[in-house]
């Protein structure tokens, strides 16, 4: 059963010389209980995509100009703000890279959690507080009955992220969007948080959209992956397949630029050049200027998406002879 589907979505931001299209025609779907990773570098459009699902894009600067986002078939794009508020928190929750910016520094942890709980249920203050303490215990916070009485700045980064997760899980959402949830954390704490997220997901069957630049985190947590480059999805499929047999030269290059921890291969590849600015996206393939397999056609014609079976698709002229798939193109 499809929980979330994004269909041919395009998002534009206001720029000094007209609108700039930062996300261009992306399509993806996420099943119940599934984890989908969106991986890409700075400027790929991955965070803008996740914010658009929550309808958290700044309205005066950004607009969805094409396509649709549906939660169990219901379009989120067309909901009123009041209706959308009911979706946020209840059905879709989000955690961010830096929990300090998402927590209110002047209120104690307990108050913020009970407020979140009471926003979405008819519980008394007392019941909500009891539930807050239970939730904190559940996300592995020691002495939760004391932690409810402290302020966010008194907690470490890892503890703050646990509080954010507790808050996100408070209303048992169907979908959790995690935008670089462990990027600001030390590696041993990152391991704890990833374990916690997997545990909660197993227990509650929450689907997760994980936005990250870290291929290691994707490999360890996700079922499927979408690779974004310059506002488009260039490849997507099952994590094992994509990592083992990347089809797009960008995916392949990206995988080779990560120093592998185990194994002998000491050779490190780099991708020459840099991601073009959204106002300078070329008419053809956006990766063409950096691509080692570039052909003449690449600079002129935007490639279609080709299907390799089992949902493994890649947007690249190298596979020109194959059936196209309109869904990704």
């Amino acid at each position: 059963m499809t929980l979330l589907s994004i269909d041919n979505l395009a998002i534009e931001f206001a720029g000094p010389s007209g609108p700039v299209r930062v996300v261009d025609g992306i399509s993806l779907s996420l099943g119940e209980g599934e984890t989908l990773g969106i991986v890409g570098e700075s400027g790929s459009g991955k965070s803008v995509t996740s914010l658009s699902v929550m309808r958290l894009l700044p309205e005066d600067q950004a607009a969805i100009v094409q396509g649709d986002i549906r939660l169990r078939g219901q379009s989120l794009v067309r909901l009123s703000e009041a209706e959308m508020r009911k979706v946020r928190g209840n059905r879709i929750a989000m955690i961010f890279q830096e929990p300090m910016t998402a927590l209110n520094p002047v209120f104690k942890i307990g108050r913020q959690l009970t407020e979140a709980i009471r926003q979405h249920s008819r519980k008394s203050k007392r019941e909500a507080r009891k539930e807050a303490i239970e939730l904190l215990g559940h996300v592995g916070i020691p002495l939760p009955e004391q932690i409810v009485n402290v302020y966010p700045h008194q907690l470490s980064g890892g503890m703050r992220q646990r509080v954010m997760i507790a808050m996100a899980m408070a209303c048992d959402p169907e979908l959790l969007i995690a935008d670089e949830p462990t990027t600001a954390l030390d590696v041993t704490i990152q391991a704890q948080i990833l374990d916690l997220m997997r545990k909660l997901q197993r227990e509650r069957g929450t689907a997760m959209l994980l936005i990250t630049h870290d291929l290691g985190v994707v490999a360890e947590t996700c079922d499927r992956v979408s690779v974004m480059y310059a506002g488009q999805i260039v490849e997507q499929g099952d994590v094992k397949t994509v990592f083992r047999e990347p089809k797009h030269p960008y995916t392949a290059g990206l995988l080779k630029s990560v120093p592998q921890f185990t194994g002998e291969g000491k050779e490190l590849h780099s991708i020459a050049g840099q991601v073009p600015h959204p106002s300078e996206f070329p008419a053809g393939c956006r990766f063409a200027s950096r691509c080692p397999s570039r052909m003449d056609v690449c600079e002129k014609v935007d490639p279609a998406a080709y299907d390799f079976g089992d949902g493994h698709r890649c947007k690249c002229h190298l596979y020109g002879g194959r059936e196209t798939n309109a869904g990704l193109a």
Binding site: A191, D214, G216, V218, A219, Q260, F261, T262
Partner: peptide
């Protein structure tokens, strides 16, 4: 052992 590795076959 805490390093996430970019290889899903090596969990």
């Amino acid at each position: 052992s805490a390093i996430p590795e970019a290889d899903p076959a090596k969990r």
